[in-house]
Amino acid sequence: MTEGGPNTLEAERGVSLWQDAWRRLRRNRPATAGLVLLVTLVVVAAATPWIAPYSYSAQDLEMGAVRPNLHHWFGTDQLGRDIFTRILYGGRISLLVGFCATGVSLLIGVLYGAISGYAGGRLDSLMMRGVDILYALPFTIFVIILMVFFGRNLVLLFMAIGAVEWLTMARIVRGQVQSLKHKEFIEAAYTLGLSRRRILLRHLIPNALGPIIVYTTLTIPQVMLLEAFLSFLGLGVQPPMSSWGLLIKEGVETMEEYPWLVIFPGIALSTTLFALNFLGDGLRDALDPRAAKD
């Protein structure tokens, strides 16, 4: 930073870390587009019952499997159900699973990583050894077994996916906490007589928020992908409910005759994953400029 340059002037006006990050994010076109698309999707998903043109289970056998047209933008399936409507409802489930399961993984990963990093010493190496072992387990396979044997309900799906995806988050938070805990402001807090719990929750974790947000944004697409994968194998959401993975599975079965049944749900899923990944990359550049780009 040069003396009297634009950065110094802004520092004098007091640009906080978050304002600065927000400015950097807005300058990143793909990330902004991703953010806008994502907000739109969430709003549409929330409003689906009011804006969907048809009912998601309404069958109209006269209209079985028609091509996309003015009335049915994305066509209908063999039972005459409107694909556009089903994609809207499926998106609700896909997004819900994406956010909730990420929430579960966030909770486990942040707490585990923060405790491990803050405790240090033996407990730390024991906890991290545990993470190493879990990394080596073929988790997708366990999730499949879990879903087959314990019924296919949504809550279990969140839990199972969340329990799989927390490992990397734990590692990242541990690293952050480890480097923060010897900083002066933590020593000051300690000297003031704050409890360890309070230091951890009020001072250490909030200061590691940047990388946590970045990695959360990058976890959501992974979770949605896993949900879609399970639904594709017939292990996720069950009909008549729909999710994008399930729609793709149904579409693949009849794609020779009715290709639009697989194309539109596929586009919906891929576009959302695009948006989330671009946003995650953008957030990483904005919040954590030093992080290596992979």
Binding site: L225, F229, F232, I263
Partner: peptide, 11 residues
């Protein structure tokens, strides 16, 4: 990265 294999395969 964004097009999963169960979409790419059918396409």
């Amino acid at each position: 990265i964004c097009i999963p294999n169960f979409v790419l395969g059918p396409l």
